[in-house]
Design a protein around this nucleic acid. Structure first.
Length: 364
DNA sequence: AACCGGGCCAACCGCACCATC
DNA sequence: GGATGGTGCGGTTGGCCCGGT
């Protein structure tokens, strides 16, 4: 027996929302809140709409602090770097971009950003050299372009940890660690005793005058070459629904399995929205980014064998025979994102002095 | 001016998860 | 422990807009 429909589809209006409906919904929610029950809301509000439709309209359009319009370069960077790490988990990505909705980001990615990136990909990306452990030993553009995830973090996602400037500060505090090794395939070089603490520094976004409230992260190269991402005690407040979200990026990044090492990360994420909390089912999810030779797989799972395990899992190392074009695209984009040539894509001249400084440091 | 095709975006749909009974 | 209902997520669709012919 199938599920009962969430509403009487015959008696609900579909299609674009009229200004009157918007006003009704907005007024009702501002007065009474959602009441924790979207299904019942349209009836109470006098709307002939499905509760889900109301929720979507509110979250994606009507709620306060929604940002519409052009995405900034910083937002591009965040989207790309997160996409490279976690794939199409739009809600999670949206949580890092205040005022942006998952739908917005999804559309933006599918219609613009992906194409922007794909436009940079050579004809046959599979013929490109793999991510190289000889990072920084060659200066050819191509080899630089396909260096490693370390570059991704250099250029693309310093917000994961700190501002570019605070990266410097953080790393300077621990001179025994070469920052690029934290994400280099050659994890053997990670100093297991080194700890990088950036808790007191502003996030990358904050450093760039964005509204980002991303919690500074801590990297803990733990024992056995584990890298541990630890959030600070401070909750970040960056949910796309304008609420406060708290992200504690997981417990560990563990090197295992892969010849070059892999990055294994679990994270917890919870949102607190207008008086009610919902713990996302992503809790305890783990993702794995292998970057020893190439990005070889991205695996989702919460250890319970649910659907997250079915996220695209791709092997580009030549031992996959069932990779679809779509998956190729995904990996192509990921690979590209992982390249140092992101700076080309992201308009190098727009880089802040600090980030250039950071790159210089990283590439030291 | 009419037609066509592509891009973009709001909205819908189906599914999975979680809480409650 | 199973059934049910509510919620959230990601993929897909449909329609509008705009530029090109």
């Amino acid at each position: 027996m199938g599920r009962a429909p969430c509403c009487d589809k015959a008696n609900v209006k579909k299609g674009p929302w009229s200004p009157e409906e918007d006003a009704k919904l907005k007024e009702f929610i501002e007065k009474f809140g959602t009441g924790g029950n979207w299904i019942a809301l349209p009836q109470k509000a006098g709307l002939k709409r499905c509760g889900k439709s109301c929720r979507l309209r509110w979250l994606n359009y009507l709620r306060p602090n929604i940002k519409h319009g052009e995405f900034s370069d910083d937002e591009d960077r965040i989207i790309c770097s997160l996409y490279a790490s976690i794939g199409s988990r739009w809600s999670i990505i949206a949580a890092q971009l205040p005022g942006r909705t998952d739908n917005d980001i999804k559309n933006y990615w599918n219609t613009k950003l992906k194409k922007k990136l794909m436009g940079m990909i050579p004809l046959d990306p599979r013929k490109l050299p793999p991510f190289s452990n000889s990072l920084h030993t060659t200066s050819s553009p191509q080899s630089q372009a396909f260096s490693s995830l370390s570059q991704l973090y250099n250029d693309c996602s310093p917000y994961y940890s700190t501002s570019a400037k605070s990266c410097l500060t953080g790393f300077e505090s621990f001179p025994s660690v070469q920052p690029n090794l934290l994400f280099n395939g050659n994890n053997n070089n990670v100093n297991p005793m080194a700890t990088i603490t950036a808790a007191n520094h502003h996030s990358y976004l904050q450093g760039h005058n964005q509204e980002g409230l991303i919690s500074p992260m801590q990297f803990y190269p733990g024992k056995d070459n584990m890298l541990i991402f630890g959030g600070t005690d401070q909750a970040s407040c960056s949910s796309s629904d304008g609420s406060c979200s708290q992200i504690s990026y997981g417990k560990e990044i563990k090197q295992e399995h892969m010849n070059g090492g892999s990055l294994h990360q679990g994270y917890n994420l919870s949102n607190s929205t207008n008086g009610y909390d919902h713990h996302h089912h992503q809790e305890n999810q783990k993702f794995m980014v292998d970057y020893g030779n190439q990005i070889s797989s991205t695996t989702w799972g919460d250890g319970r064998g649910n659907d997250h395990d079915q996220k695209p899992s791709v092997v580009l190392c030549g031992n996959s025979t069932s990779t679809t074009q779509l998956q190729y695209d995904l990996e192509e984009v990921k690979q590209l994102i992982s390249s140092s040539n992101m700076s080309l894509f992201f308009n190098d001249e727009n880089k802040t002095h600090e980030s250039r400084e950071a790159m210089y440091y990283y590439n030291y």
